[in-house]
């Protein structure tokens, strides 16, 4: 995952390698800036696109050249509009993600740890999960109005399910042998959760949070489509209605950057907690 390199500026596995073969680890260390390789493809596409329009090979009206998208971005940023929209979108995601992730973690932990509770709750939750979350939109608007509450609720619902599922299956599949170690040392139920269960499910939890965040971004767009006066989703709708493809693409690019940054933030924040894992961070 290149994001780790982006944030920390060093390869993730460098300090995880056993000291015994530190020499080997050093030779495996990729050169600084190796992540730049990932930028090559989009750069080539952008330059080709720009050139095609400049030389009149294609018309740029519906497919504006990168330079015009960039101009639009700069204009939006200069006027302060971009910051307003980004802030609106991020605060919706932030709130919805926090609520959805907290609820998903709590309910997932309960159903994962208790078989009776799982039998009672899980079928219902799975049935609710099968409903496309967008289907809730009319109901949420009726219940909560067209302003922030219904938007945040939709995002929270979207985030809840992947987090719930990840935490529940992780807790239910914690190695029984490790739990037995806790029993041998006479841990109380609470200590067992704190000292064995939680650390054991941490990697799966991080993965669940990341897929939850991805869905959060998906649903913030849906939420902002259903009537918003600011936010990146509003920029998209506005661009469509006023025929400004450059504004649509500028908003899409902003989404890509924001999504990546938020995901990298989760990875970077949890990295110290997962240092014990064997190379898994490269796979996440």
């Amino acid at each position: 995952m290149a994001s780790v390199d982006l944030i920390s500026g060093r390869p993730p596995a460098a300090d995880a390698a056993p000291a015994a073969d530190a020499g080997g680890a050093a030779t495996r260390r990729p050169a600084a800036g190796i992540w730049l390789v990932g930028v090559v493809l989009p750069l080539v596409v952008a330059v080709g696109w720009e050139a095609a329009i400049r030389f009149g090979l294609v018309q740029g009206r519906l497919l504006p050249p990168p330079s015009r998208i960039f101009d639009t971005l700069v204009t939006l940023a200069r006027s302060g509009d971009l910051a307003t929209h980004v802030l609106a979108t991020l605060s919706r995601i932030g709130l919805g993600f926090a609520v959805g992730a907290a609820a998903g973690t709590a309910v997932g932990a309960l159903t994962g740890a208790s078989r009776p509770l799982r039998r009672v709750l899980d079928p219902t939750i799975q049935a609710l999960r099968a409903i496309p979350s967008i289907a809730w939109v009319p109901l949420f608007i009726l219940w909560l109005g067209i302003f922030e509450a219904s938007k945040v609720t939709l995002i929270a619902v979207g985030v809840f399910f992947p987090v719930y599922l990840g935490v529940m299956s992780a807790i239910a599949s914690v190695d029984r042998k490790l739990i037995e170690v806790g029993r041998v040392f006479r841990l109380s139920p609470l200590a067992l959760v704190r000292r064995v269960l939680l650390p054991a499910v941490l990697p799966a939890w991080v993965t669940a949070l990341r897929s939850g965040l991805g869905l959060g971004f998906m649903f913030v767009v849906a939420a902002e489509f259903m009537g918003a006066s600011e936010g990146l989703g509003y920029l998209l709708v506005d661009g469509q209605q006023l025929g400004k493809p450059d504004q649509i693409l500028a908003a899409i690019i902003t989404f890509a950057v924001l999504g990546k940054l938020c995901d990298s933030l989760i990875v970077a924040l949890t990295a110290p907690l997962l240092a014990w894992q064997d190379t898994a961070r490269d796979r996440l």
């Binding site: 042998k177 490790l178 170690v181 941490l202």
Partner: peptide
């Protein structure tokens, strides 16, 4: 008690 497998906690 020590088990057949070491059963160390990998996060400690």
């Amino acid at each position: 008690l020590a088990f057949q497998e070491a059963r160390l906690l990998p996060w400690l």
